[in-house]
């Protein structure tokens, strides 16, 4: 078991190294970093000096090594646009994104699992058909249209919820600013989190449903019925648990994509998170911010994948046995 974890950690480190390499090359290929930094009046001599001072004349491998060492210490350089350390900017913006993703994930998993169970177990119920039809809408409409629709209905027409921003935030110790402690914060998070969660909800719902239909046909479910078990035990104990391995895989990846997809939602709702920061960085070719964001999102994916792999063991004894040997 420990070996397996070490092995997976090693794999994760390699993935991160490759991502770091890509984001490192961003610096060298997306424009000349020196001309991005200096003004128009700077002489060529000054530019060469700056290039020398920043170590940009060193061999690529030395520069990459320096990039990695800095990144490990949380140093991603200075934002071209805002002239502030990137790690500071990200630390400021991260709570907003993570809270949005957290609420969306809860909505997506809660509604997805409940809807998947209902449509999978009561296939011919009219409500199942209704859920499946509406879930098609969730899958096929682009996020920003749903966001704009929600703003139009609930903010503009009904005037129930704010159309942008995070509402009032409270600063917690450690520099974390939360919107989840104020009423206006909760009001502000409803529309963006629903917008962000909708696609993932329908995906989780449909996967649970199709896995459930598959599992319900297996011999051990038939045998469980023949043993006279209660349908509650069969449905939740045996059927649902057997759908979990694929569901965990997809759900894990989807939480990763929630972080990645929050860019669009944050733009629509002017949510002051990392996604909005990234979009602005792209517009200004603010390479340090872009590369730091890239590495961070990759890190989230890697960590989630690691957790997913560990959850497999909790669920499936066959995998535990495989690793032991």
């Amino acid at each position: 078991m420990a070996n397996f974890i070490l092995y997976r950690l090693f794999q994760s480190a390699i993935v991160m190294l490759i991502v770091a390499l890509i984001s490192f090359f961003l610096f060298n290929f997306v424009g000349d970093p020196i001309s991005n930094m200096v003004g128009q009046e700077t002489t060529v001599k000054d530019m060469d000096e700056l290039r020398q001072r920043l170590g940009l004349n060193d061999p690529v491998i030395v520069q990459f090594g320096r990039f990695i060492v800095d990144a490990l210490q949380g140093d991603f350089g200075i934002s071209y646009r805002l002239q502030r350390p990137v790690e500071e900017l990200i630390a400021e913006r991260m709570p907003a994104t993570l809270e949005l993703v957290f609420v969306s994930a809860i909505i997506a998993i809660g509604l997805g699992v409940a809807g998947g169970l209902f449509t999978g177990l009561k296939r011919s119920h009219w409500f199942s058909k209704f859920i499946l039809t509406t879930s098609l809408v969730g899958i096929s409409l682009p996020t920003f249209i749903i966001g704009i629709l929600l703003i139009y209905i609930f903010a503009v027409k009904l005037n129930w919820l704010p159309s942008f921003g995070r509402g009032e935030v409270v600063d917690l110790k450690g520099g974390w600013s939360t919107g989840l402690l104020t009423v206006s914060g909760w009001k502000a998070i409803i529309l963006p989190s629903i917008t962000l969660a909708l696609y993932q909800t329908t995906l989780i719902l449909r996967i649970i449903r199709s896995e459930l239909l598959e599992v319900m046909r297996t011999d051990f479910i038939k045998f469980a019925r023949a043993r006279g078990l209660k349908s509650r035990d069969i449905n939740y104990g045996h059927a649902l648990k057997n759908t979990l391995v694929p569901v965990i895989t997809v759900t894990g990846l989807q939480i990763g994509s929630l972080i990645a997809f929050s860019i669009v939602t944050e733009t629509v709702f002017q949510w002051p998170g990392m996604g909005a920061l990234f979009i602005q960085a792209v517009q200004f070719a603010d390479v340090p911010v872009m590369s730091a964001y890239l590495i961070l999102v990759a890190l989230f994916f890697v960590v989630i994948n690691l957790i997913v792999d560990l959850l497999y063991f909790v669920v499936d004894p066959r995998l535990r046995a495989e690793i032991k040997n």
């Binding site: 051990f220 045996h238 648990k241 057997n242 499936d316 066959r318």
Partner: peptide
């Protein structure tokens, strides 16, 4: 081989 639930003892 398939009559028993693989996830329970």
């Amino acid at each position: 081989l398939t009559s028993l639930d693989p996830l329970y003892t």
